[in-house]
Amino acid sequence: MAAPTPVIELRDVTKVYGHGEAEVCAMDGVNISIASGEFVAIMGPSGSGKSTAMNMIGCLDSPTSGEYLFNGVQVGKLTQDQHALLRRNYLGFVFQGFNLLARTSALENVELPMIYKGMPAAERRKRAREALAKVGLAGRESHDPSELSGGQQQRAAIARALVGDPQVILADEPTGNLDTKLSIEIMELLKKLNERDHITIVMVTHEEEMAAYAHRVIWMVDGKVESTGTPDEVFKRGKQSA
């Protein structure tokens, strides 16, 4: 029996920014394969290309060369609008800076992706409430982001990411702006979504404690994947070579 098609597959992806002298190679022949239901942490020092990889997976950026297959479909051959549809229907984003709309209630923030799907208002409201309840923000629907704590804002952002029933949640340094206690809450939430709802999670982080929640760590250096394995394996190897 053939192995199931990975959700995300980067094949020999290279990304070059700038031209001539200023040319920077952010990704250099990267091969990454992520199976459905995995919880993967992409790690590495700054400038290692982990954010570029994340943007690539999120269809926000396109490779200079190489291929990106999402559920076996070549993303590079899709149009701009199809990228938007892919993000809308299959992906959910969680950012370091939360990126909630200011002066907009938590409920309306969570409704946002469904507006673009053209879902009727009543249905939207119902699902947004459910998503907020799932992340433990029931009762705070009408609060503006400024009225929520950092942890609550990130929960609202996670609710927004999961409200569209995504296949994959992409989390870019989701705990970067939070203290340890709140970070652990957020990680527990992501872990629960992964285990209970089988949502594939790809997370960029530079904190080992957070990466430890993942099934697998992909360690990048200078635009290349240096090592991959369980968190324990990767961290042990890193310490030996240091």
């Binding site: 609008d81 809308r88 984003f93």
Partner: peptide, 16 residues
């Protein structure tokens, strides 16, 4: 600009 970025990230098309 940031708001537009968020909208695009959650799946708004350029036309929307």
């Amino acid at each position: 600009t940031r708001e537009i970025g968020i909208r695009l990230a959650v799946g708004a098309t350029g036309n929307q």
